[in-house]
């Protein structure tokens, strides 16, 4: 029982990180109808920038954890968002009118580029950050097992929930959200009614990248280990989460992320860690075959 509960907590934490990255995929797919293949790398860049940030605040002598955290998070979000914006500007905008495959290839190229860019600029070694936030709360004590939720996990939960709420507000209530939804519905029509489509798309990338930056920062805090290759797998899993929840749906992305995180946690805990990625991919394949619109996606009527 205790073990199960612990895996549940770990799974939810992992799932929330996936969910944050998945939102970036789902928003871009909703608007552009394409997989932003480089999004996983944006997340990886976020993780690297946050490491630099943590070292810098350490050097600057800022020891108050909340203050340091806010500084690092804000800086990471801003700098990572700049990467998100640039990726769209360089790799996707010139290809708005191009055949369907062109942006995908461009995205894959961008992903390879960013991976190697970080490898060259930051080195190929694994970066290990000493724990920044330590400690936790013991929730339950069995005879031989203590269920524990660490402060980092609590932080991830809290931050994710706040961001999700903020996001729901942006999409549902603000002019930007309306513009996004309009562009997702019909880009041509949206531009005819005076929505600046290019700007909306750019902002979507900026927002997605900012969330990925948060996820990257959280992963740095949570695991304390980062290398330039984490973007690929995390990207695919986050996309899986987005598809699982129903692509284009924000709550779906979060739900998909949670399910995926739980499956992975339990799979690793009760079966084998080697095949946990296989489990994730198998879910993706099964969902797409049996429910291509995902759990919360809108059913699609074939237009004839």
């Amino acid at each position: 029982m205790g073990y199960f509960l612990q895996q549940l907590i770990n799974g939810v934490t992992l799932g929330m990180i996936y969910g944050l990255v998945a939102i970036g995929y789902t928003m871009v797919y909703g608007i552009l109808g394409m997989i932003n293949f480089a999004h996983g790398e944006i997340y990886m860049i976020g993780a690297f920038i946050s490491i630099l940030g943590f070292i810098l605040v350490g050097l600057a002598g800022i020891t108050a954890v909340p203050l340091a955290l806010i500084i690092v998070l804000t800086a990471t979000m801003i700098f990572t968002a700049a990467y998100g914006w640039s990726v769209e500007r360089v790799a996707y905008r010139p290809l708005r009118q191009a055949p369907r495959l062109a942006p995908l290839i461009s995205a894959i190229g961008m992903s390879i580029f960013l991976q190697n860019y970080v490898q060259l600029s930051q080195g190929a070694q694994v970066k290990t950050l000493p724990p920044f936030i330590e400690g936790g709360v013991v929730l339950l004590r069995d005879a031989d097992f203590a269920v524990r939720i660490s402060y980092v996990q609590l932080l991830i939960w809290l931050l994710t929930l706040v961001l999700m709420a903020g996001f729901a507000w942006i999409i549902g209530r603000t002019a930007l959200g309306r513009a996004q939804r309009a562009c997702a519905e019909d880009r041509v029509m949206a531009s005819l009614v005076g929505i600046n489509v290019d700007r909306t798309i750019s902002l979507t990338f900026v927002l997605g990248a900012a969330l990925a930056a948060v996820a990257g920062t959280m992963v740095t805090l949570y695991y304390g280990v980062v290398d330039f290759f984490i973007g690929f797998l995390a990207g695919i899993k986050a996309f899986t989460a987005a598809v699982l929840g129903g692509i284009g749906s924000l709550p779906g992305a979060m739900l998909g992320g949670l399910i995926l995180g739980l499956v992975e946690a339990f799979w690793s805990a009760y079966f084998t860690t080697e095949y946990k990625d296989v489990a994730a991919f198998t879910i993706l394949v099964l969902v797409l075959i049996f429910r291509p619109t995902g759990l919360l996606g809108r059913p699609e009527v074939e237009k004839v």
Binding site: A91, L95, A102, S106, G109, M110, I112, F113, Q115
Partner: peptide
């Protein structure tokens, strides 16, 4: 360079 070339050729 490989990645950049993919992006540029597509553009």
């Amino acid at each position: 360079v490989f990645g950049a070339a993919m992006v540029l050729i597509m553009a």
